[in-house]
């Protein structure tokens, strides 16, 4: 074999040996331990720290909120619908890279600086699950936020930890009362409001059927106390106990006063009548968009006009209604009252 061939082979063998040596030095000892990969990688990946901590972690400090939640609709294990703390509050044990959960006034880490991430904008947060959109299954509770609460924060009426536990007017609405017992106490009501609370032609009282229970109860209480001034109602209400009021309110609320079809055409009509601002709470057809507001169904034009004048004049007072009523001139008031005055019970 000529010398140059021998040397060529030596060079090639040398390169091969160097390659084998480097390979033996470089390859991780745990490679092939469980298969064709670095065995140590498995434990390394498993070592990462979890960021979402689970409800028990939150409960350890926020027992009261946890208790409210655990008795509310957001904890419904029977339907597997469990909205855990960290769904709305963000991961308890880690960074919040997108700042998706932070209240502007709280710190970025919890509980490192003992500040809880509280969602600031509940309309933005709650609608993530509860806005009505195409594709969402019917079982999911959904609202059209434009028609539900006039853009007000959900937390104004709902306790987010137990959303069917209401605050304010809604809390009263949810309180109760016995409609059957209430019916027996309505003898004094029927002459003016009709036996089922539907104010037929010629009756002087407004329609009570299907009216918001909390509104009815609050109205009776206001008449009794004199906060709302009406000589007939003062006489009737002064003999009622608190439970009477609840029962009567429950009875009339349970009676039917169905609305005509609502929808886009109705909304356009409301707008035309200058009642667009009313519609966001009272609905375009008089059916309220939320349980906090009274129904306008079946009310006479005269009654509505009187009510608006009372708000404007200060005989009745409500944070929203007083302002709206004052903003209307006589013609506007008449027009709006006429519009809703046409919404009779069906």
């Amino acid at each position: 074999m000529p010398r140059h061939i021998r040397r060529l082979l030596l060079v090639l063998i040398g390169l091969g040996l160097v390659a084998v040596a480097v390979r033996n030095l470089v390859v991780d000892r745990s490679f092939y331990e469980y298969g064709h990969y670095r065995g140590n990688a498995v434990a390394e990946i498993a070592r990462d720290k979890p960021k979402f901590q689970g409800t028990a972690y939150c409960q350890s400090c926020h027992a009261a909120e946890y208790d409210t939640w655990a008795h509310g609709l957001h904890y419904s294990p029977d339907t597997a619908r469990i909205v855990k703390c960290e769904v709305c509050h963000g991961p308890g044990g880690g960074r919040d890279p997108g700042q998706n959960y932070l209240h502007a006034a709280t710190g970025p880490v919890h509980p490192g600086n003992l500040k809880l991430a509280v969602p600031a904008d509940t309309t933005a947060l709650c609608t993530v699950c509860h806005e009505q959109i195409v594709g969402r299954p019917a079982e999911q509770r959904q609202i059209v936020s434009g028609e539900h609460a006039g853009g007000q924060q959900c937390s104004l009426c709902h306790d987010a930890h137990a959303p069917l536990r209401f605050k304010g007017a809604l809390a009263a609405a949810a309180a109760g009362g016995n409609p059957a017992a209430g019916q027996r106490k309505t003898a004094a009501c029927a002459p003016c409001h009709g036996p089922t609370g539907v104010s037929a032609a010629g009756l002087i009282g407004p329609t009570l059927a299907g009216q918001n229970r909390a509104y009815l109860a609050a109205a009776l209480a206001a008449y009794r106390s004199g906060a709302r001034k009406n000589p007939i109602m003062l006489g009737v209400a002064s003999v009622l106990s608190n439970s009477d009021i609840e029962d009567i309110a429950a009875f009339f609320a349970s009676q039917k006063c169905a609305a005509g079809p609502g929808g886009a055409a109705q909304l356009a009509a409301a707008r035309a009548a200058g009642a667009a601002m009313c519609a966001s709470c009272h609905g375009a057809n008089g059916v309220p968009t939320g349980a906090a507001w009274p129904s306008l169904l079946g009310q006479s034009t005269d009654y509505l006009q009187g009510a608006l004048r009372s708000y404007a004049g200060g005989d009745r007072s409500h944070v929203v209604m007083s302002a709206i009523a004052k903003s209307l001139d006589d013609a506007g008031t008449a027009k709006v009252a006429a519009y809703y005055g046409g919404a009779a019970c069906k």
Partner: peptide, 9 residues
């Protein structure tokens, strides 16, 4: 290189 490689291998 050859010697080194052989030793290392």
């Amino acid at each position: 290189a050859l010697a080194g490689g052989a030793v290392a291998a």
